[in-house]
C-alpha cells in the first residue's frame, strides 16, 4: 500500500483531509516543514501558507515549480467572553492587552507584522505576550481564553466558532496571503503527488477550499 506523505501548513489541517483523506499528513508551521524537507524528509507534496518557502526550495532545486492554489485573509479573534473588551484592531493599542501572534518566519507571524505595519499599528507588538510556532497554537491560546486576542486566518475561525469572536481587519491593511504547493525532489511517489495536486486544483477541490473559507486564485 502506497501512502502519500503530504507536508501542509497548519491552516490546512481541516480542509486537506476533506479533499483527500487517504494520504498521511503532517501539519505544522510552513517554515518547519521547509526545514525538514531541506534535511531530506521524504515529503511527496509541500503545501505552504506563503510563497516564500516553496519558492526558496524551488530556487535551491529542492522542489518542482510551485503553483498557487488558494488565498486567505488575516482576522483578529478574541475569546467569547472578550475579557479585554476588544472591538477593533485599534483597541489593541491599549496597554495591558495580552496579544498572541505567530513567530517571525512562520507565515501567519510575517503576515501579522505586515498587516500591523500597513495600518501603522506596529507599536501594538509591545502587547505581544507569546509568539507561537504555527497558527493553530495561536488559535488554541485564544480559544482557551488564555490570551485576549490573536491574529489568525479567516479559515481558522469556523472550527472554534463556539469559543471565539471574529473581528474583521480593515481591507487597507490586508497582506496578500497566497498558498503555494510543489513536489519536493525527495518525493517517493512523484506521480501520485502530481495527481494529488490536480485533485486540489480540480473543481471539487476548489469547491471544498471555498466552502472552508479560502479564496481562490
Amino acid at each position: 500500500m502506497k501512502f502519500l506523505a503530504i507536508f501542509a501548513a497548519a491552516s490546512l489541517t481541516g480542509v486537506f483531509p476533506q479533499i483527500d483523506h487517504a494520504p498521511r499528513y503532517q501539519f505544522a508551521g510552513s517554515d518547519q516543514l521547509a526545514f525538514q524537507i531541506t534535511q531530506g524528509a521524504p515529503a511527496d507534496v509541500f503545501a505552504a501558507a506563503s510563497p516564500k518557502y516553496p519558492e526558496q526550495l524551488y530556487a535551491q532545486r529542492l522542489c518542482s515549480k510551485p503553483a498557487v492554489f488558494a488565498t486567505n485573509t488575516v482576522v483578529l479573534i478574541v475569546p467569547r467572553a472578550n475579557p479585554a473588551g476588544i472591538r477593533s484592531v485599534y483597541d489593541l493599542r491599549r496597554s495591558g492587552i495580552k496579544l498572541v501572534i505567530g513567530a517571525k518566519g512562520v507565515p501567519i507571524g510575517d503576515y501579522t507584522r505586515k498587516l500591523l505595519a500597513n495600518l501603522g499599528l506596529s507599536d501594538v507588538l509591545q502587547n505581544v505576550v507569546s509568539e507561537e510556532d504555527d497558527v493553530k497554537l495561536v488559535v488554541a491560546k485564544v480559544a482557551y481564553g488564555e490570551a485576549d486576542a490573536g491574529f489568525v486566518y479567516r479559515t481558522d475561525v469556523k472550527p472554534v466558532g463556539a469559543k471565539v469572536f471574529r473581528i474583521g481587519v480593515p481591507a487597507a491593511g490586508q497582506p496578500t496571503v497566497q498558498y503555494e504547493m510543489c513536489i519536493p525532489t525527495t518525493a517517493k511517489h512523484p506521480a501520485l503527488a502530481a495527481a494529488f495536486m490536480r485533485e486540489v486544483l480540480s473543481k471539487r477541490g476548489r469547491t471544498t477550499l471555498r466552502d472552508a473559507g479560502f479564496g481562490l486564485p
Binding site: 517554515d31 518547519q32 513567530a103 517571525k104 505581544v128 507569546s130 509568539e131 507561537e132 510556532d133
Partner: peptide, 22 residues
C-alpha cells in the same frame, strides 16, 4: 503554559525549538 516570547518566557530549550528551523 507560559508561551514563548524572547526576553520574557523564551528559555534555552524553547529557543532551540524556535531557532532550529531559522
Amino acid at each position: 503554559f507560559a508561551g514563548s516570547l524572547q526576553r520574557v518566557t523564551e528559555t534555552l530549550p524553547l529557543a532551540i525549538y524556535a531557532e532550529f528551523a531559522r
